Amino acid sequence: MTRPSAAHLIAFLLPATLLAGVWGAQLLGGLYPCEMCHWQRWPHYAALVLAGLGFFVPAGRGRTALVVLAALAIGVSGAIGVAHAGVEYGWWPGFTACTSTIDFTGLDPSQRLAAIMRAPLIRCDRAPWTLAGISLAGFNAILSLGGAITILVLMMRRTTR
């Protein structure tokens, strides 16, 4: 096996780091995700799998394809982050209703109603945390789109040499 390229490492480490950050914020910081937050995670999971598979594929077209697909998945997450940040900042209306953290498994209707009334609603149009006015969705947009562009530029440089 040949050594992974910088683009390949970024394609693996960027979604791994972003997912670790949001899971840490959720599990340790109590910042529960809304539905649009979950939408941003799925492409990162896909990118992580694609880039991870690239470590087991010999260098060449197969690995290149996996890294490019991972970059595209990261870019999709960034695009969803733009949409979500726009909803949070009030630039456009949201695409979804608010979500909750309720598990209805095994609950009868009266227990479901009681659970709904106790559970916090996680609104897609309110940022639960910001840094310098940038929400987690905004940071995902910046880092994911920047990372996807960086990966693709590095991949193009490799193929033109």
Rank of each mutant, 00 (worst) to 15 (best):
T2N: 14
T2E: 15
R3Y: 13
P4T: 11
P4R: 02
A7V: 03
A7S: 14
H8T: 10
L9P: 03
I10G: 06
F12K: 14
L13S: 15
P15V: 11
P15W: 03
A16H: 07
A16S: 14
L18A: 12
A20P: 09
A20G: 14
G21L: 15
V22I: 15
Q26Y: 13
Q26R: 15
Q26D: 09
L27D: 10
L28S: 08
Y32E: 14
E35N: 15
E35F: 15
C37S: 04
H38G: 15
W42L: 11
A46F: 02
A46V: 02
A47T: 07
V49C: 08
L50Y: 12
A51N: 07
A51M: 04
G52T: 05
L53F: 12
G54L: 04
F55G: 09
F56P: 01
P58C: 06
P58K: 12
A59P: 06
G60W: 05
R61W: 08
T64P: 00
A65Y: 14
A65C: 13
A65W: 15
L66V: 09
L69C: 14
L69V: 06
L69Q: 05
A70D: 05
A70P: 03
A71S: 12
A73C: 06
I74D: 04
G75H: 06
S77Q: 03
G78D: 03
A79I: 07
A79K: 02
A79L: 09
I80V: 15
G81M: 02
V82K: 07
A83R: 06
H84I: 00
V87A: 11
V87M: 04
E88S: 09
G90E: 01
G90T: 02
G90M: 01
W92E: 03
P93K: 09
G94F: 10
A97F: 10
C98I: 06
S100M: 11
T101E: 13
T101Q: 14
I102K: 11
F104L: 10
T105Q: 12
G106M: 13
G106S: 13
L107N: 06
L107Y: 03
P109Q: 02
S110N: 14
S110R: 14
Q111I: 11
L113W: 07
A114T: 08
A114D: 13
A115M: 02
R118P: 10
A119M: 02
A119W: 00
P120L: 02
L121R: 12
I122D: 00
R123T: 09
R123Y: 09
R126A: 15
A127Y: 04
A127W: 04
G133T: 01
G138F: 01
F139R: 10
F139A: 10
F139H: 13
F139I: 07
A141W: 02
L143N: 01
S144M: 10
L145A: 05
A148L: 06
T150H: 00
I151N: 05
L154W: 03
L154H: 00
M155G: 00
M155K: 11
R157I: 01
R158N: 01
T159N: 00
T160Y: 00
T160P: 00
R161F: 04
